[in-house]
Design a protein around this nucleic acid. Structure first.
Lengths: 245, 245
DNA sequence: CGTTTAATTGAAAGCAGTCAAACTATGTGG
DNA sequence: CCACATAGTTTGACTGCTTTCAATTAAACG
């Protein structure tokens, strides 16, 4: 699954996506004290209302953030791929405002909060990278507000597929042509504000139109440009080029 | 409109909402170099794709962040009250991923980015406050994803009214019993993912139910608890108590 | 005032939800 | 290896919330 010698290698990759990191910076991140823990599918790593423990970094597998409405409906607010921090906001907030839950069996590196704080203080580039990573996540939330607020069902599903493809690719985890979607259609519905039934119909529609091909949950994109177009996907909001400001 | 002697007083109040700030910290923020500029209603302060100029802090009036979909539909992703930073994300990101636009005539303090960076480096509490303010904004985005993704039209509108009430109050800007909504119903629609027509109907419904009273755009809440209940509003996501982590 | 913008109301259409059932895949225990 | 249970996917028919279209009223503004 993951490189067991360097569990934090993908975290380095993620942080280095947005900011230039020196060899020493990278080594310092890799050297962060941590314990790797495994979680079964659907297990909670953070619960709304709780106060935070050590910071979690996803090493392998997939996880989501979500909130539950008063009516009991679930909204997934983000999907996470290996290398991404799962609760770095708890370096500075002392109560969780949402849940973090595994989608698949996952490995997570638990890093003491103090260790991250000290590293960030000692290394400006690391601090910068953490900040940018937090800001990019906020940008993704904004795009999701747009997605569920304005796009029709077909475009919403298509947009999610596009975003996941690009983010997997950024972490070097995309297949040559597609990827294994780690979510049920129910979960896709929770992420897009649709019902599982309607997600199913939209996936079928995308398939019929030749924009998506499916084998089980493995999706490929015979007409990537077409899919981008009908979803209104533009990757600016992912801020994938290095920030120099 | 604003206290002309201390344009940044409300910024101090905003930052001190989340983190304890010493007298010196507060004085240092107030002493930030800046120029105050006035904007007409509907004027753009940041445009998607642009690279950032000086950082803007809203002094008086109201502003929104928004994104435009490929189909040309607008989604407002947040509403800002005086004292709030409008583009501190550009301290670390060098391309805007969304627009910032005034709702009403507004005064904005423009602060050189370097001045804020230096202040944050010199004063850990200020850095902490900036970070928390960024993280709280991200939390609000998550709640908005839930709002437009899962709540029905009536609850969406009610939730927006609740959030705005609490945020105005946190800045000491709420009337005794209600406030002047600085948005047209069209804009409320852009913020809730609804049409202006339907926003109108929902406001009427809330009024008929005795949850909201309106005189022009001035809204009061004869049954605040009832309004909270039907909207599923809970203020945890605003993180209004001081963070000590 | 006269003009423009915003709010309101009604009627009709449509997209997505709900309900229900069949089908498929996966996994477990006998 | 089969029987069965469980979870997920697919499909159809129907309902309903929200949108669309259109017209009227009210408010804001020069």
């Amino acid at each position: 699954m993951s490189d067991n010698d360097q569990p934090l290698a993908l975290l380095v990759r993620k942080l280095a996506t947005h900011v230039e990191l020196s060899k020493d910076d990278r080594a310092a991140i890799l050297a962060l004290p941590h314990t790797v823990r495994e979680f079964d599918p659907s297990k909670y790593m953070v619960r709304e209302g709780e106060s935070p423990g050590p910071c979690a970094v996803l090493i392998s597998g997939y996880a989501v953030r979500h909130k539950i409405s008063a009516e009991g409906d679930r909204q997934i607010v983000s999907i996470h791929v290996p290398g991404e921090p799962l609760d770095f906001q708890h370096l500075f907030l002392d109560e969780a405002d949402h849940n973090v839950q595994t989608l698949t069996r996952s490995e997570v590196a638990l890093v003491p909060r103090e260790a991250i704080r000290k590293l960030a203080e000692a290394r400006p580039a690391v601090m910068h990278a953490l900040l940018v990573s937090i800001l990019v996540e906020a940008s993704i939330f904004r795009e999701w507000v747009l997605n569920v607020g304005q796009r029709d069902a077909r475009a919403r599903v298509a947009h999610l597929l596009c975003e996941f493809a690009i983010r997997l690719d950024a972490q070097g985890l995309a297949g040559s042509n597609g990827y294994e979607l780690p979510m049920t259609q129910e979960q896709l519905g929770d992420a897009t504000g649709l019902t599982a039934v309607h997600v199913n119909r939209m996936l079928k529609a995308l398939e019929t139109e030749g924009l998506v091909k499916r084998k089980g949950r493995y999706v490929t994109f015979p007409d990537w440009k077409g899919l981008r177009d009908i979803s209104g996907f533009g990757e600016r909001y992912l801020h994938l080029s290095k920030q120099v400001a």
